[in-house]
Computed example of a mutant assay.
Amino acid sequence: MSKLTHFNEQGRAQMVDISEKKETVRTAIALSSIKINQDIYDEIINGKNKKGDVLAVAQIAGIMAAKQTANIIPMCHPISLTGVNISFDWNVDEEASIYEITIQAEVKTKGSTGVEMEALTAVSATALTIYDMCKAVDKNMIIGPTMLMNKTGGKNGEFLR
């Protein structure tokens, strides 16, 4: 069983000391999704949402969230991000009434700690922003699953789901 590093000798929470860790290029890719109904799909595709361009606003929210991760996840280190990219894919089957947006965040840094939490925070905030912008039309939207797909860099190397 590995030692949990976020606890000190007294069993209390601590922010891990990364001062001795090697600085490397680190990346993380996370995915989430949000299931919507046809009315919301039509609004987004046709640019008819009263609050504005849903995907553009959500994309900016995801980027902002990645940059603020250390402010909302207590044990995350504030890190300098070198890149954040949010992208969307549609999964639509009109006959089956399936309307789903897949959200991907790719986050990069050159530093002593990884960016998995930043990528996961980015896709979560993106999905939540879509929900917020569309909830007046329908509150039955479903967010998730949310997961880490890939990470590179650091002493543990690559993770690939």
Score class of each variant (00 low, 15 high):
residue 2 S to F: 11
residue 3 K to G: 02
residue 5 T to C: 08
residue 6 H to K: 06
residue 9 E to C: 10
residue 13 A to I: 12
residue 16 V to R: 01
residue 20 E to W: 09
residue 20 E to Y: 10
residue 23 E to P: 05
residue 23 E to S: 13
residue 24 T to R: 12
residue 26 R to Q: 08
residue 29 I to R: 03
residue 30 A to C: 06
residue 31 L to P: 01
residue 31 L to C: 09
residue 34 I to D: 01
residue 34 I to G: 00
residue 36 I to V: 15
residue 36 I to T: 09
residue 37 N to C: 13
residue 37 N to Q: 10
residue 37 N to S: 15
residue 38 Q to Y: 12
residue 38 Q to V: 07
residue 40 I to K: 03
residue 45 I to M: 13
residue 47 G to N: 10
residue 48 K to S: 15
residue 48 K to E: 14
residue 58 A to S: 15
residue 58 A to E: 10
residue 62 G to P: 04
residue 62 G to W: 01
residue 62 G to E: 02
residue 62 G to A: 02
residue 63 I to K: 01
residue 67 K to E: 09
residue 67 K to T: 03
residue 68 Q to L: 10
residue 69 T to A: 04
residue 71 N to S: 10
residue 72 I to V: 05
residue 73 I to S: 07
residue 74 P to I: 11
residue 76 C to W: 01
residue 77 H to W: 07
residue 81 L to H: 07
residue 85 N to V: 15
residue 85 N to D: 14
residue 90 W to I: 12
residue 91 N to V: 12
residue 92 V to Q: 11
residue 93 D to C: 13
residue 93 D to W: 05
residue 95 E to H: 09
residue 96 A to S: 14
residue 99 Y to C: 06
residue 101 I to Y: 00
residue 101 I to H: 01
residue 102 T to P: 02
residue 107 V to N: 01
residue 108 K to H: 14
residue 115 V to R: 03
residue 117 M to F: 02
residue 118 E to R: 04
residue 127 A to K: 07
residue 129 T to C: 03
residue 130 I to M: 09
residue 130 I to F: 00
residue 133 M to I: 10
residue 138 D to P: 06
residue 139 K to R: 12
residue 140 N to E: 14
residue 141 M to N: 06
residue 141 M to G: 00
residue 141 M to F: 08
residue 143 I to N: 10
residue 144 G to V: 02
residue 149 M to H: 11
residue 153 G to P: 06
residue 157 G to S: 08
residue 158 E to C: 14
residue 160 L to H: 14
residue 160 L to F: 14
